[in-house]
């Protein structure tokens, strides 16, 4: 089936957003020849080589591994380097627009520095000391769920679709967004980590704003189950640790499950 679509498609017409701000910029149509197997990013290269040498596109690996080439293709948030032409309807032009949530730099490139600022608010891992032989022991079963979160390529597509950020600029201050809930979940579920971030997840990273629409999970190119595996378990921890007075008192007096090793991460921690 893909074979036939590809044989039919000798050239592709793309409508690419061009400009330096969202109001004055506009979609420009280009038609370029294409080869079998091409992805949308290949078409952008063709446009650069044949029609618009200064078309701004951010990319790096062209293999779905670096998370640089996020864009909205036919209105859907995707990686340009992993979107095959054969997966798009052949009869219609392909629309390529920059991510909507972040400030525009130029053409398809946005300013994603919001995410890098959020990253700075998260207290790093702090492990319990290694065994007497200098090595640490963790078992594959406990590592599996954290490894799922570590697959994140920081494409920020989830941040882009999350309505809490997309529709409410004012939330940005107090809301980390799905990418960083994934990061926080990875830290919280690390079998040897000693820090307690629950209070700051609630108070400062704004987990409560998320109303589990699952839009983030739908767009994740790494198929991380952001809502089911990261956000919901974090919400449960917040509820049980923060709103359950008994658990709270117990935690304060007797320490966490690992015998007081859990050190609360200060909200003001950088």
């Amino acid at each position: 089936m893909t074979e036939t679509t590809e044989q039919v498609r000798r050239d592709a017409t793309v409508r690419v957003f061009r400009g330096e701000d969202r109001t004055s910029g506009q979609f420009v149509e280009y038609t370029v020849p294409v080869d079998p197997g091409m992805v949308v990013l290949d078409v952008m290269f063709r446009v650069q080589q044949m029609r618009a040498p200064d078309l701004a596109v951010r990319w790096n690996c062209k293999a779905g591994k670096c998370g640089s080439c996020s864009a909205e293709i036919n209105g859907r948030p995707k990686l340009m380097c992993m979107t095959r032409l054969s997966s798009l309807p052949p009869a219609e032009p392909i629309t390529v627009a920059p991510m909507a949530t972040f400030p525009l730099v130029r053409d398809l490139v946005t300013d994603v520095s919001f995410n890098y600022e959020k990253a700075k608010t998260i207290p790093a891992v702090r492990l319990a000391p290694p065994g007497p032989d200098g090595k640490r022991r963790m078992f594959q079963e406990e590592v599996d769920r954290v490894q799922e979160f570590h697959k994140c390529i920081e494409c920020f597509l989830c941040q882009n679709v999350c309505h809490v950020i997309r529709d409410h600029e004012e939330n940005k201050e107090a809301y980390a967004g799905p990418r960083f809930f994934v990061k926080l979940a990875a830290l919280e579920m690390h079998p040897l980590d000693t820090r307690d971030r629950i209070e700051m997840i609630r108070a400062r990273e704004g987990l409560g704003y998320c109303n589990i629409t699952k839009c983030c999970t739908e767009v994740c190119p790494e198929s991380i189950k952001i809502t089911d595996n990261a956000i919901i378990p974090l919400k449960e921890r917040v509820v049980s640790e923060f709103y359950d007075p008994l658990a709270w008192v117990k935690r304060r007096i007797f320490g966490g499950p690992d015998d007081g090793a859990k050190e609360p991460a200060a909200v003001a921690d950088r």
């Binding site: 492990l127 290694p130 963790m138 590592v143 570590h150 690390h190």
Partner: peptide, 19 residues
């Protein structure tokens, strides 16, 4: 390599729980 683990890297494990 061990230092990376200290800083949060999660390598695949042996049955004994080592890297």
């Amino acid at each position: 390599v061990l230092e990376l683990e200290e800083w949060g890297a999660m390598f695949d494990r042996t049955p004994e729980g080592l890297i």
